[in-house]
Design a protein around this nucleic acid. Structure first.
Lengths: 328, 328
DNA sequence: CTGAAAGCGCTAACAA
DNA sequence: TTGTTAGCGCTTTCAG
């Protein structure tokens, strides 16, 4: 910037003001200075600027992976979400700092916040970090979380109504005449737990006999989905449907079922959750509960920018939607 | 940092050195200072640090979308690649700054470089920006590009041998007894152009009559894939196979064919390119040319860090691999 | 309208 | 082993 000032024959302050579009500088001067800057490939150094302004024009997108560490960042759910977030953030002229935290250590969130690399944070998924989020949110406002609304929650969350989604999926299977519906998913995660509660409510409401052997909700990762469904098939438990807590799990289940000579949906119907791009292309195409990730990203970023302006938004809950395909 | 120094009863420099792990500081002092920092939730400000050190511990991942602007960042190819890159970069203790450039304006790359936000750059895809990459690479070394190796190329590229891939796909279709093979893809993009050249070579080599009506290689975006294949079907040209330049295009083609009562692969065989996660789950599962994106990400980052150390690596070419499924 | 100067939080000579 | 001090490149009072 000093160079530009010298070339333009003005002071550094004038260059700074001109390039920042200050109204103090006459158009002619500004043009002249901008032209010199352009010709010399000069771009304001955002670090120095950020240091001075304490603003970075950067939004942090962080993906905490707790005890589900093996769920890669490459999981289609994260990636679809990330794509939409990127579009929304870029649209507003901010940069994106992407972090994957695996596994989260105590104080990780405070470290991210204190480092002041970003003006705001969007956390994709609560993982098992609800406590950390609660405590960080007490004195850090520009943060939004994709996930479940939990009792006593102090942070801003955007998410689908998971309980309703679980209920919807299960009711649909009952409508299809199924009575022995298995659940597959890790209920340690808040969102999955709520889906599970919806499943239980539907089971109760429609008078299904609750069989704990059908309820595979602990020690679960996407990778073990195939094994879990195989175990179900081999165990000989009566089972005519599976509600999987995600499309990835559903896909694994379908493959395991086919592998053991069970036809989908004739022998066992399968319903997933997410409606990620793979859902429409499985064989058979997967009935699932849709989460509109584009809308989700929009809501997350809208909430975040409201908060950047000092409005403490409470977050949003989206309605889940049953998408019926051929797996049920 | 001044606060911590005061609390510890030492100077700022001592704190700085202690926290940076300088060997000048005795362990006892370091422990004491670290403890105070931790207790007060103090984290070194990476901006100030970067300003001083002219290093950011950040790698920029940029996705230029040229005339194929409509190809969203949400395209599975980008997202899978991004996931693997994120893993590799995080592993090395660097942060990731994600940028989508759509559309690239003259000088965009210089701006990104001059802003000095990142220590190095990985560019995902050449798009139509070969010239820009060449000229930027003349005085900026820590940059690697995913894409084709082009004649007279001065920048470091990692990519699959696209020509060989195109040849492989086409030969496979010939092996399956097909003689009227259409090409679907935008040959404006260097990588696609090379795939097209492989296609042409195979056509020549196996004595297929070249029919320009089967050669849909201009004005192409993923979204128009369905229309293009419909046009092919409706035109009544004799066609018993399609080589699509990407899995997304292949998927669109399959849907269009089915929609018009053509069976895949009986009436028309289809081969894609990428082997993205959807490929295994289309109906029928898609025969395709695999690009190992995990390996690709590894190679890209290895090249980048070599270059960060001053070794001007030339890049790598990966062998494509034919993955035979049921669409051919 | 423009410039001089202070300072954002940090690191690294240089001095002690 | 530790402290003093001079910047890194920018913005912004404050004083012309």
């Amino acid at each position: 910037m000093a160079d530009i000032a010298r070339m333009a024959g003005v002071s550094i302050s004038t260059v700074s003001r001109a390039l920042a579009g200050s109204p103090l500088i006459p158009d002619a001067t500004r043009e002249m200075i901008s032209e010199i800057a352009r010709a010399n490939g000069y771009v304001v150094n955002p670090f120095a600027r950020g240091l001075r302004l304490k603003r970075t024009q950067t939004i942090g997108v962080v993906i905490p992976l707790g005890h589900e560490t093996r769920q890669l960042i490459s999981d289609p759910f994260f990636l679809e979400m990330l794509g939409h977030l990127a579009d929304e953030i870029t649209l507003r002229g901010y940069e994106i700092l992407l972090s994957k935290i695996a596994p989260p250590k105590p104080g990780w969130l405070e470290t991210v916040i204190q480092s002041q690399r970003t003006d705001g944070l969007v956390i994709i998924g609560q993982s098992d970090q609800h406590e950390a989020l609660v405590s960080a949110s007490e004195n850090y406002e520009p943060m939004v979380v994709w996930g479940a609304h939990l009792p006593g929650q102090t942070y801003c969350a955007v998410g689908v109504d998971n309980e309703a989604g679980g209920y919807l999926a299960t009711r649909h299977l009952v409508d299809r005449g199924r009575r022995h519906i298995a659940f597959l998913g890790d209920a340690e995660l808040p969102e999955i737990k709520q889906r599970h509660q919806g499943y239980l409510r539907a089971c109760r409401e429609f008078g299904l006999n609750y069989d704990p052997r059908l309820d595979a909700r602990s020690e679960f990762t996407a990778e073990t989905a195939a094994q879990a469904s195989e175990r179900l098939v081999m165990s000989g438990v009566e089972m005519d449907a599976i509600f999987a807590a995600s499309d990835v799990i559903a896909l694994a289940a379908i493959n395991a079922l086919k592998h053991h000579g069970k036809s989908v949906p004739d022998d066992v119907a399968v319903v997933g959750f997410d409606d990620s791009t793979i859902a429409a292309h499985t064989n058979p195409p997967l009935t699932t509960i849709r989460q509109d990730l584009q809308k989700a990203a929009k809501l997350l970023i809208e909430n975040l920018f409201q908060r950047l302006d000092g409005n403490l938004t409470p977050g949003d809950t989206m309605a889940p939607e049953l998408v019926i395909r051929q797996s049920s």
